[in-house]
Amino acid sequence: MKTTLILVGKTNGKLFNEGIDDYAKRIGHYTPFAVKVLPELKSTKSLSESQQKDKEGKMILKTISPSDFVVLLDEHGTEYRSMEFAKWVEKRRNSGRDLVFVIGGPYGFSPDVYNRADALISLSRMTFSHQMVRLIFVEQLYRACTIIKGEPYHHE
């Protein structure tokens, strides 16, 4: 089973990129893992929020296969403690389906993407920048991998 993180738009900032790359490599020691960056939309000033979400949504849906278990990182999603998230990830991995996490653009997701999603996860009730969410999420996914393996990275 493969795990993929889909990002809409590139990550800005050397610090964020280095952190994401570091955790992506670490995750790769536990499971096949890839980060797919979808291109940012051009000329968005002439597009409404809804039009932007629809265009981004079409790109996201083209990247996902019908058999994937799709998880949107969304402020209205379920919040997990790290141990709970690790159990959740392990259960999904055991299902045999590829696990695809998606961090959308600045306005969230289109209705079509929400309809395709199998689950929604929220990292916090607080609001973080899209750049920060990327780094926080890959760290939590790495933490889940170490918890599943019983390694000492996480302390209760």
Rank of each mutant, 00 (worst) to 15 (best):
M1F: 08
M1C: 05
I6W: 04
V8F: 03
V8N: 02
G9P: 01
T11L: 14
G13C: 05
G13F: 04
K14P: 10
F16D: 00
N17G: 06
E18I: 07
E18C: 00
I20A: 07
D22M: 11
Y23S: 06
Y23E: 00
A24S: 15
K25C: 08
K25S: 14
H29R: 15
T31V: 14
T31S: 05
T31C: 11
T31K: 08
T31A: 06
V35A: 01
V37P: 00
V37M: 06
L38R: 12
L38H: 10
L38G: 11
P39Q: 12
E40R: 12
S43W: 05
T44C: 13
E49M: 10
M59G: 10
I60D: 06
T63E: 15
I64F: 08
D68S: 13
V70G: 02
V70M: 15
H76R: 15
G77T: 06
T78S: 05
Y80D: 00
Y80L: 08
R81N: 09
S82Q: 13
R93S: 07
R93V: 07
S95K: 07
R97H: 11
D98S: 14
F101H: 10
D112W: 02
V113F: 09
N115Q: 14
R116W: 01
R116Y: 05
L120W: 00
M126A: 04
M126Q: 05
M126K: 05
T127A: 04
S129G: 12
H130S: 03
V133S: 03
F137G: 03
V138T: 14
R143W: 01
R143S: 03
A144N: 03
T146M: 04
T146D: 00
I147E: 01
Y153R: 06
E156H: 14
E156K: 15
